[in-house]
Design a protein around this nucleic acid. Sequence first.
DNA 1: CAGATGCTATACAATAATGTATGGCAAAAA
DNA 2: TTTTTGCCATACATTATTGTATAGCATCTG
Lengths: 308, 308
Amino acid sequence: MYGKKCMLENLRWDLYRTFLAVLEEGSLSAAARSLALTQPTVGRHISELESALGLSLFTRSQTGLLPTDAARALQDDAQAMRGIAAALERTGCGFSAGICGTVRISASEIVGVEVLPPILAGLQAAHPGLNFELVLSNKVQDLLRREVDIAVRMTAPKQEVLLATRVGDIPVALHAHQNYIERHGLPTSLADLESHVLIGYDQETPYLRAARAAYPFWSRANFALRCDSDLAQLALIRAGAGIGICQVALAQKNPHLVPVLSELFTLKLTTWVVMNEGLRNSTRFMTTFKGLVQGLRQYTQTPMNQVK
Amino acid sequence: MYGKKCMLENLRWDLYRTFLAVLEEGSLSAAARSLALTQPTVGRHISELESALGLSLFTRSQTGLLPTDAARALQDDAQAMRGIAAALERTGCGFSAGICGTVRISASEIVGVEVLPPILAGLQAAHPGLNFELVLSNKVQDLLRREVDIAVRMTAPKQEVLLATRVGDIPVALHAHQNYIERHGLPTSLADLESHVLIGYDQETPYLRAARAAYPFWSRANFALRCDSDLAQLALIRAGAGIGICQVALAQKNPHLVPVLSELFTLKLTTWVVMNEGLRNSTRFMTTFKGLVQGLRQYTQTPMNQVK
DNA sequence: CAGATGCTATACAATAATGTATGGCAAAAA
DNA sequence: TTTTTGCCATACATTATTGTATAGCATCTG
């Protein structure tokens, strides 16, 4: 019956930053060090937050502070705020004079490991002030929430506020190691694959859904080796563990990998470079964007990627 | 060649809040009023931000401040920060003693207008400290980013970190106004619909995709009246404009609405109440969550919603 | 054209936030 | 046990942030 004033508090946003640091560091002193503040200041921030929200965030103990349930519930939001603050700073620096600062780029693991490095190295050499953060993941990072600034994607962009450029198609096909073929024979029809060790995904991603639409047998139930990491799948193929999908161009670099049923089973992954529309006027982001587009265009037009 | 220090700036997050206010209010003075600060303070915040980021955010003019491209690019991030800060405060207040504070709920327009009000009124009466913010939209609001705290959805939740409860099925079917039927006749087969005025969506939503899967003719090309607002569709049906989909229970409230082909075309929308897992320990959110579940269960088990 | 309004920029005073120094306490190490 | 270390809490000094008051400059209005 005693209602606390749960109305609009209008707290300083800095309190949230301090709160997050305490949560992550585990003590007022450690948080103070990480924020370049002092321990009394951090303590005051926390008690200010606590009294404003009308709850206790930590249970004091000599060995440190234990977060309460409430504090744990707030952690996600505080982390989100920090992420956005970081994005905001990156954006801002991108607009200042000169091409310098950090750009966060997301791509699939394969593209990030096998394709992007030379492109980014070239960009970095041309613009020494530029730094790159690579987020390699098969789940689509959120450009609108600014988890990343630029994304290399295999799916056509849907949202209008994004600046997207198509850079070409990357052909992928079934491959296996010579060793594996020697032991199991080369399949000559899709039906043959039933008796083979297939390497595939564990959780379905949008791009794999598309693959399954064209080739129904390429579904989770038929895989003997399931792994969500494209890199690990490639490693399994290289190790002769079975038959899996990989980029034609990457397979050709390794003389021991042979294509399997390439006439019957081939996908072309249309590749896009996508950026938030609002970053268009920033030299830093546009330079990176154009560099990625150019580099990936060259890559997709490589003879290795032109195998019809 | 003159590179600004684009490294980690470690700015106070409050500067972003001030910046956003200036952006939205259009002048330092107006922003100061809206933030309960003074104009010199706001001005200092902006120039602090500008010098830290090494760019100019506004072009000064007597009639106000014009945002530069850079400022516009930063707006989205700043707004996102404000949204999260608000969510954080709501979460925090939910943990304080007593059931009070604000809960943001998203639902479709129809559910929000026709179904939720009595439920929320009951909850509010039982807990006078509780306030509700209704976000009515057919696009799925993001629970993870805390745009809303609790969502009423017609699609099964996919993410694991969500606490979801199924509250039953809501039957929907084709309906038309008596007037319309008198003028155009009552169709007796799906083929008959071709010569009728169909009221449907403009942009496809996930739930409508499901409808189309079961009833292929229910696609955008066949609609004479297209509108994304369920409410407007219902209004069109009520006005005798044509035949459209609406909840069976809502149609029965209006004696002039008659079901059309209800044996051939019926959908059951499975309804869920979904909440962020982390809010489970907050009495405020759990109270609301349980109240919504109970109220919607009652609603779906109403005789009107049980027409097989 | 004079007067009002609304805005920004600057100088100075008041206030609020931060840092410094210290004490107390518990757990780990000697 | 004694010592050391690391932590939080408090009192006091310092700094930095904010508010007040004012001037200057445009635009709009009668």
